[in-house]
Design a protein around this nucleic acid. Structure first.
Length: 575
RNA sequence: GGACCUGUGGUGCAGCUCGGAGUGCACGCCGGCCUGUCAAGCCGGAGGUCGCGGGUUCAAAUCCCGUCAGGUCCGCCA
């Protein structure tokens, strides 16, 4: 039907007769017998010179036949990829007429989300969305090739799975053949892939759809896509290598340049220096320890298990009102308080002076120590939190991001592996710690003997992949030994009966010869969003849900007819 | 479950503090003019349940309460 794509016509084609199909993006008419029609398809836009009288409106679908010619001197359009040529001697066939679109099909049109989603098929015609969808395909393709090259085997796992309440809320699917019982849609293929390892698959991967019935966010949809992988007879470093290869290949395919090898950082260091387990390394400043500086301080506000500081470059101009707001913000984040120091040029030059309510009560050594430790210079602002170690770090970490946050599309892509997560999180109301990753995560071999005596100090062999402050994914070396698993379950307060009813089939499988195995999963939507410079993964999903989980295009979710409910053995409460 | 922002012709906004006739801007749309435009230009025109419901008031887009929708975030997301 066509000889090529609109966006690919160039000087090489001058003189060629072409047939192009697409949508009428714009038309500029000059009297009855001259019109410039911008024809758009997925590849871009090309100008067609139409000198016959045809009624062409926005978004009509047309087929244009004509001859590629160089534009007359001075008539080139440098803003257009195809701006040096145009299609002349055009005959136009209208394939489909169109009503005026609900909004302009152009990138610069800023339209409310609900309107875009209701007419997503129009929205998707915009160059930005076309580029995002194709970028996503490029990324997925590169990942597949990297995994295949490394000997991984793509295997599909069931969408209709067994309820194994474990963390995220699951979507339930009623069984028609067994009324009153349910399948669930998988939060991830976690257990299935571990069964595959027992099944001798050795190296599994899947571009897997995962479903979690949790509240939505800019970086969270009910359905999302992960590169899910698992391998047997491998170490943590092997897994990091496999995934790095896939991610770097994908980044290279997407951006044209290969990022440097992905660095590693311990979870403890991430907390200490960035106050979070997903540090945004584009922001230069890190949190510094001021414990020594204020070790013997007389200032009561700074007496605490930990004193941490953050330099805010160029922040000395921050107004008193804004500083008060920062203090309030720090308190809202859980800190006892927040001390601030505006760093100014010392009167008469030479050195720095501190402007702060605390400046007078600090000793000379403390003032100098503060400046030295933070590296602050005149023009900067220094924020200090004295509190429990974790609180001091997380509060300053949050302020660091809020004060210096960069748009997703700005700056380099800084990948980092965060390793050596703790095995357990804080003791819960039931007197037991919670699994930081999941209950099948292998403890760090050096920490095995502390599972019972000091569980919170036990490190795990779990790891996260972080990109510019976005958690892309996580994984771990799994427990394959029944004795270790039993100890971890015991520490978590999971009874034998509990373990049997929730994970019995996995534990059973392990009795028949479980290889040591480890794996990882990362969110492709998030990776693509960052690579595309988009703030929300909705921009890289063809048909996303709104924040309240509805789809303005289809109207989902909707009630089912009573007859359907009856067949499923379901009665809606309160009717 | 909670906090905040937004909702005004098809689209994006202004108007809202301090109530006084649906007032304005840009784009789009319709008609006319126009043979080198390219976010074409010029002239003319149409298009509104100010999200919805209630309250206050002589009078509500504007103030108050509720509610719905979209967004950002907290909780949640092993």
């Amino acid at each position: 039907m066509r000889t090529g794509l609109c966006g690919e016509v160039g000087l090489d084609d001058v003189g060629a007769r072409v047939r192009l199909c697409g949508w009428v993006a714009r038309r500029r008419e000059h009297g009855e017998h001259l019109a410039f029609v911008d024809l758009r398809d997925r590849s871009g836009i090309v100008q067609c010179v139409v000198d016959t009288s045809v009624d062409l409106r926005s978004e009509y679908v047309v087929c244009v036949s004509g001859v590629v010619r160089r534009r007359p001197e001075g008539m080139e359009n440098p803003n257009l990829e195809t701006g040096e040529v145009e299609i002349g001697d055009c005959t136009v066939e209208v394939l489909s007429v169109a009503e005026p679109p609900p909004f302009l099909v152009e990138d610069r049109a800023d339209v409310e989300e609900a309107v875009r989603l209701r007419h997503r098929y129009v929205d998707l015609r915009r160059p930005r969305m076309q580029a995002n969808l194709r970028l996503r395909a490029t990324v997925v393709s590169a990942i597949r090739r990297a995994m295949e090259r490394q000997g991984f085997c793509e295997i599909e796992t069931p969408l209709l799975w067994s309820p194994t309440p474990e963390g995220a809320r699951e979507f339930a699917v009623p069984s028609r053949l067994h009324p009153g019982t349910f399948y669930v849609l998988p939060q991830s293929p976690q257990i299935a892939k571990q069964l595959l390892m027992v099944g001798g698959v050795d190296r599994y991967y899947q571009i897997a759809r995962c479903l979690r019935d949790e509240d939505l966010r800019a970086d969270r949809q009910f359905e999302f896509t992960q590169l899910d992988m698992e391998a047997s007879f491998v170490t943590q470093d092997d897994v990091l290598g496999f995934v790095s290869e896939a991610v770097l290949d994908a980044a290279e395919a997407a951006t044209g340049s290969r990022p440097p090898a992905i660095e590693q950082m311990s979870w403890a260091e991430a907390l200490d220096r960035y106050g979070t387990d997903k540090p945004d390394l584009r922001i230069e400043t890190a949190i510094v320890d001021l414990g020594e500086v204020f070790a013997s301080s007389e200032v009561r506000a700074l007496a605490a298990p930990a004193v941490k500081g953050l330099r805010v470059r160029g922040g000395s101009g921050t107004s008193r009102a804004a500083l008060d707001a920062l203090v309030e913000r720090a308190k809202a984040l859980g800190a006892r308080g927040l001390a601030w120091f505006r760093v100014n040029e010392r009167e008469g030059g030479g050195g720095s002076s501190l402007d702060s309510p605390l400046a007078r009560v600090l000793s000379e050594e403390e003032r100098e120590g503060l400046l030295r430790a933070t590296g602050a210079a005149p023009g900067d602002l220094v924020l200090v939190v004295a509190d429990e170690h974790r609180t001091a770090c997380t509060v300053l970490g949050q302020l660091r991001v809020e004060l210096a946050a960069k748009p997703v599309g700005e700056g380099p892509h800084r990948y980092v592996w965060v390793v050596q997560f703790p095995l357990f999180e804080a003791i819960g109301a039931d007197g037991h710690p919670a699994a930081a990753h999941h209950p099948f995560t292998m403890p760090h071999p050096d920490d095995l003997d502390r599972i019972e005596t000091d569980p919170l100090s036990v490190r795990s062999q779990a790891y996260d992949l972080v990109l510019n402050g976005w958690e892309l994914g996580s994984g771990s070396v799994r427990i394959h030994r029944a004795d270790v698993q039993a100890r971890v379950f015991k520490a978590l307060g999971v009874s034998d009966e509990d373990a049997e009813s929730r994970f019995g089939f996995l534990m059973n499988a392990f009795r028949y010869g479980a290889p040591p195995h480890a794996g990882f999963a990362f969110g492709i939507d998030r990776l693509v969003a960052v690579l595309a410079g988009e703030e929300s993964i909705r921009e890289v999903v063809a048909f996303p849900k709104t924040q309240s989980g509805s789809d303005p295009l289809t109207g989902a979710p909707k009630p089912l007819p009573v007859s359907s409910l009856a067949e499923l053995g379901i009665r809606i409460a309160g009717r």
